[in-house]
């Protein structure tokens, strides 16, 4: 057995330094991005279409990252993420537009209802594996769609037309907050437990991970953020219908996650940004758009199945090595003693 000290610097040594410097630069970068876009769009340099695209990008980032928590990190295939989004959208609209509560209350309320939806669908179905869970979540989305269609209070098949209360500032900062929270979660003991479930559920249970409870929690958190994204969507677009949250939309969110890389948070962000930009660029050629997306997916699966970033995370330290939190030790072949 080895007795010499390990050459792996413990995280503790730099932990005290890391959060502040890295966080400072991150926050500064965020403020700059937000401010520049805000300024350019208000001064008219960015036209309405580009601003809209950027807002949709932000909403898609929230959707992709929250689905990634469930599907990429925890390994539970879900085909009904738009249903959680729809719950958030409808209940944010009910609370704000119908009942006259302030917009932030409606937004959070919508998120909470979506989280509740995650609990309701998660508890009975999370004993199902893989494709069975996917089918069950797909059914959940379809049921909700039909409920909205036949519920006159929320406009039936016509849907609702709430005022535009969300804007670039709301979307941008909520996207930043969602990403930050989910990233922190993944990089914690709870997040490791979720990944253990994805890797080997039997072993996870055998080392003390309450697998069902963790899966349901991942579902609730993912659904909550999807609900927030839904509220933003409804209150930016002026209008939404039951069909806005159908299977096709769920599938499109899954495409963002798979393209970016299952399990990679930064991958989901890249996926959402790239796909939204591409969609906007091809807006005038709707038929070509679908062909190009199909081709993109096929090529991706052929040549880079792990997605754009695979499971890797992009970190500021890749640009600024001074921020590096820990040396990636190991990789020394045959150095076992």
């Amino acid at each position: 057995m080895a007795t010499q000290p390990a050459k792996i610097p413990a995280r503790t040594s730099t932990a005290a330094l890391y959060p502040w410097r890295s966080m400072g630069i991150s926050i500064l970068g965020m403020v700059v991005v937000w401010g520049v876009v805000q300024w350019l769009s208000q001064s008219g340099v960015l036209n309405l279409f580009i601003t809209q695209t950027l807002v949709i990008m932000g909403i898609n980032v929230i959707l992709a990252v929250s689905l990634n928590l469930i599907t990429g990190v925890t390994g539970q295939l879900v085909l009904g993420h738009a249903a959680f989004m729809g719950l958030g959208c409808y209940f944010a609209a009910i609370l704000t537009y119908k009942m006259g509560l302030p917009f932030p209350v409606g937004l959070i309320g919508g998120g909470l209802v979506a989280g509740l939806g995650g609990l309701v669908i998660g508890l009975p179905t999370l004993r199902l594996r893989g494709d069975y869970l996917a089918i069950a979540t797909l059914g959940f989305g379809e049921i909700l769609r039909i409920v909205y269609q036949n519920w006159d209070y929320v406009g039936g098949a016509v849907g609702m037309s709430p005022p535009q209360l969300a804007n670039w500032t709301w979307v941008f900062w909520l996207a930043v907050l969602s990403v930050l929270i989910i990233w922190h979660l993944v990089d914690s003991s709870h997040g490791r437990a979720l990944q253990a479930i994805r890797e080997n559920e039997i072993a996870a249970e055998a080392v003390g991970v309450a697998t069902t409870r963790h899966k349901v929690t991942a579902f609730i958190i993912g659904a909550f953020f999807a609900g927030i994204a839904g509220g933003l969507y409804g209150f930016y677009n002026y209008a939404f219908q039951p069909s806005s949250f159908d299977f096709l939309h769920s599938f499109n969110i899954l495409v963002l996650v798979v393209l970016g890389g299952l399990g990679s948070i930064t991958g989901s962000i890249v996926g959402a940004v790239v796909v939204t930009a591409l969609q906007a660029a091809l807006q005038s050629y709707p038929y070509i758009q679908n062909v190009i997306f199909a081709l993109l997916l096929i090529l991706m699966m052929l040549f880079r199945r792990q997605g754009l970033l695979g499971r890797y995370e992009f970190h500021l330290s890749m640009i600024f090595p001074g921020l590096r939190r820990e040396e990636k030790g190991g990789h020394s072949d045959g150095a076992r003693s």
Binding site: Q195, A196, N200, I202, A206, V209
Partner: peptide, 30 residues
């Protein structure tokens, strides 16, 4: 039955999860 895609260190850390003393909100808020 290891957690194959995770690191050796993470494999061991996961087995300590049952005794972990911080909650989901501690993790989210660091």
């Amino acid at each position: 039955r290891l957690f194959g895609q995770l690191t050796v260190l993470e494999n061991v850390l996961i087995a300590m999860h049952g005794h972990v003393s911080y909650g989901w909100f501690d993790a989210m808020l660091r």
